[in-house]
Design a protein around this nucleic acid. Structure first.
Lengths: 338, 338
DNA sequence: TTTTCCAACCAAATCGTTTTCAAATTTGAG
DNA sequence: CTCAAATTTGAAAACGATTTGGTTGGAAAA
C-alpha cells in the first residue's frame, strides 16, 4: 500500500496524509484522527527507503563490532534495543574488517559516506583515538562509550574504571593485603589505563610499592585468569589478593586458586569487575564473588538514549556522563591470613 | 558527491556511470575502468537510500534479538559479520518487543512491511512456529536457525542436537552410568525437544528406565546448573552423571558438585554442550570438560552465506543443513565409581 | 554506395515519500 | 454581510539513484 492509493481511499491528498501521520500542526484534528485510524485498518506504512531518501535521515545508528566475540556485546546491544524499541530507529551492526589500522579508518570513512547511519557508537576508545578525530572531521554525530583524551569535542559515557579499581584495591589493602595482583584488559584502550591508574594510586597512597610482576593484561578470557593467577601463586612470595578484570577472568582465577589446593576468600582474596550478566552472576559463584559492578545493559540503554538526543540536535559538548561503580563485598574477600 | 556531479566531472551521463559501476555489459571496458578509478579518487559512493528506494532492495538482513541477553548471540553475529564483510549487506538487529505473543507476530509483520530488510533469520523456532508461517505467507525470504515441524516450506540450518545428546548419554551409559541427569533449555523450542528425544532414546535403547526427576529445563544460566545439580546430588539415589545444556550451566554444575565435596570426573561425570566461545573454553575448565561441540560462529557465517543465496534467488526448498556435532572427551567423564 | 547491425552512450521516467508554495475554505471582526 | 486573517488542503517539485527505450556513429554486409 503506497501513500498514493492510501490517500485516494481516504479522499485526501498525499500531502495531507503525510502531514497527518508525521504530526504536523496544519492539519485538523478530526482529519488526523481519521487518517491514523485508517492507516492502522488498511495497514499503511510509509516506505522507509523513500522516507530516508527524502529526509536524509538513515533511521539507524551504527555499532562497530570488534572481531573478538566480546561477551559484553550482547548485553550492551540488548540495552540499546530496549531504548530503541519505541523509536523508529534501527541498530546497524558493522563488522570490523581487520584489526589492521588503516582498514579500520577506511571502514568508518565509508560508513559515514554511505549515509547508512545517523550516528555511530564508538567502543573502547584509545587515549588518542583517530576514529574520534575522523568522525568529528566528517561531521558525523557519535557517542563514545568509554573515554579518550583526544583534543576534539565529543560526547561520551563511561564508567569510573579508575575509581572502581582504586576502591577495590584500597579495600583489599584495608584487609591487610599488600601483595595484590591485577588483571587488566588489552593495553591500548583508555579504560585499561584508567584501571591501571586506580590500582597504582591505591597502592601508592598507602605506601605500598608496586611490583610490575603482579600485573597482567590481555583479552578477558578465563584462560588469562587461570594462567596468570596460577603462575603467580606458584612463585615465591605469591599475592594474597587478585583484582580480576572481568567475570571470565575471575572464573579462571578461581580455578587457579582451587587447583593449588587453596581457597578463595581464605588464602587468596578476589575482586572482579562485573558487567552484570543474566547468565553468570557474581553472587552465584562459590564462594560468592566480591565485585565492582556496573550494568552493561543499562549503559547500552543510556547510550541509545543519548545518541537519539545527539541526532535530534543536542550538542555533544554537554554530553559527558561518568557513571560511578558500586563495590559489592561478598565472600571472596577476607582479611589477609596470618 | 552525487551521481549527477560525478558524471558531469567525467563528461559522461549518469546512466553510463551507474552502469559502469554496477557492472552492466553495455559500457566499454576503458570507460568502466576510468569511472571506477575516478570514483575512488573523488570519493563517489551511491547514496544507499536512493539505491534502495529505486531497486527495492534493503541491503540488510534482519536478526531479531531476544530479550534475555543470550551469550550465544554475539558469537553468531560475529560469524555473520565475517561473511557479510565483503558483501554490501548490513545486519539489522531488531529488538524483540515483548515476550507477549501477539506482539511478536506484529513485530515481524511490521518488519516485513517496512521493507527494511531483504531477509530475516529466525532463531530458536518452535515445532509449530507461527513466525515461519507468517514470513512464508508474506513472501519474505527467511532462514531458520534451528528446526521446525511446521508444514510450510522453508530454509533451515541446524545442528544435530538429538544426535549430540544421544551420543553424550550413550557414552555415559558405556561408562556404566545409569542415573544420568539432563539439563535442557527452555521448553518450547524444537532444539529442546530434540535434546530430550536424544536423551530418551539413548536410555531406552539400553533398557534404562527414565526418571523424570532427573530432567530440568530453563534458561542456560549458571544458576540453573547449580541449583538443579545440587538438589539432585543431595537426594537419595543421586545421579552419577549430568548432561548440561550449555557452558554456563556446566559451570553451575561443577560448582554444585564441588560444593558437596565431590569431584567432577570422579563421583560425578559431566558432559556439556559447547558453542565454542573465545572467552570460556571447555578445555580450560578444571577438570577439563567433555563436551558436544559445534561452533556458533561458524553457524553464523554459514547462515549469512545461505541468506545471501536466498536473497539472490535460490529456492528455500533445497536449503536444509544439518550439522553433525562432535563429542570431545576430556577429564570430566569417567567410569561410574563402584 | 547504400543498408544493416552493433557497441557505446544518453534523456527522461521512475521509485514513494516530504515539503514548498499556493489555493481553497473557514473564522472572526467590523 | 463583507473582507481580511487564520486555518486546512493540494499540486508539484524535490531527494538521488536505476532502468527503459531511445540515439549516435562507425564497422560490416550487401
Amino acid at each position: 500500500m503506497k501513500l498514493r492509493e492510501f490517500a485516494k481511499q481516504l479522499g485526501l491528498s498525499p500531502t495531507t496524509v503525510s502531514r497527518a501521520l508525521s504530526g504536523y500542526p496544519e492539519v485538523s484534528e478530526v482529519t488526523r484522527a481519521r487518517v491514523a485510524e485508517e492507516a492502522v485498518r488498511l495497514g499503511y506504512q510509509p516506505n522507509v527507503n523513500a522516507v530516508r531518501l527524502k529526509t536524509g535521515r538513515a533511521g539507524a545508528i551504527g555499532v562497530v563490532m570488534g572481531r573478538a566475540g566480546e561477551f559484553h556485546f550482547a548485553e550492551f546491544m540488548a540495552g540499546m534495543a530496549e531504548r530503541l524499541l519505541t523509536e523508529d530507529t534501527d541498530i546497524l551492526v558493522i563488522p570490523m574488517a581487520d584489526p589492521d589500522h588503516n582498514d579500520e579508518m577506511q571502514l568508518y570513512r565509508r560508513l559515514v559516506e554511505s549515509q547508512r547511519v545517523d550516528a555511530i557508537i564508538v567502543h573502547s576508545p584509545r587515549p588518542n583515538d583517530e576514529r574520534i578525530a575522523l568522525l568529528h572531521k566528517l561531521g558525523m554525530p557519535f557517542l563514545v562509550h568509554g573515554r579518550s583524551d583526544i583534543d576534539v569535542p565529543h560526547a561520551w559515557l563511561d564508567i569510573d574504571n579508575e575509581g572502581a579499581v582504586r576502591r577495590a584495591t584500597s579495600h583489599l589493602i584495608d584487609l591487610g593485603h599488600t601483595r595484590i595482583a591485577m588483571i587488566n584488559g588489552r593495553p591500548g584502550a583508555t579504560y585499561a589505563l584508567h584501571r591501571d591508574k586506580g590500582y597504582r594510586e591505591a597502592l601508592q597512597s598507602r605506601g605500598i610499592e608496586l611490583d610490575p610482576q603482579l600485573i597482567a593484561s590481555g583479552n578477558f578470557t578465563d584462560e588469562l585468569g587461570f594462567r596468570f593467577a596460577r603462575s603467580l601463586l606458584e612463585q615465591a612470595n605469591p599475592p594474597t589478593a587478585i583484582v580480576a578484570g572481568s567475570m571470565m577472568t575471575a572464573l579462571g582465577v578461581y580455578r587457579a586458586i582451587r587447583s593449588l589446593g587453596l581457597q578463595v576468600g581464605r588464602e587468596v582474596s578476589v575482586i572482579a569487575h562485573d558487567d552484570v550478566f543474566p547468565y553468570l552472576t557474581a553472587d552465584n559463584m562459590a564462594p560468592s564473588l566480591s565485585a565492582t559492578r556496573s550494568s552493561m545493559r543499562a549503559a547500552g540503554t543510556r547510550c541509545a538514549d543519548l545518541v537519539l538526543q545527539l541526532v535530534s540536535g543536542r550538542s555533544p559538548l554537554d554530553i559527558h556522563e561518568l557513571w560511578p561503580v558500586e563495590l559489592i563485598l561478598r565472600e571472596s574477600t577476607a582479611p589477609v591470613p596470618r
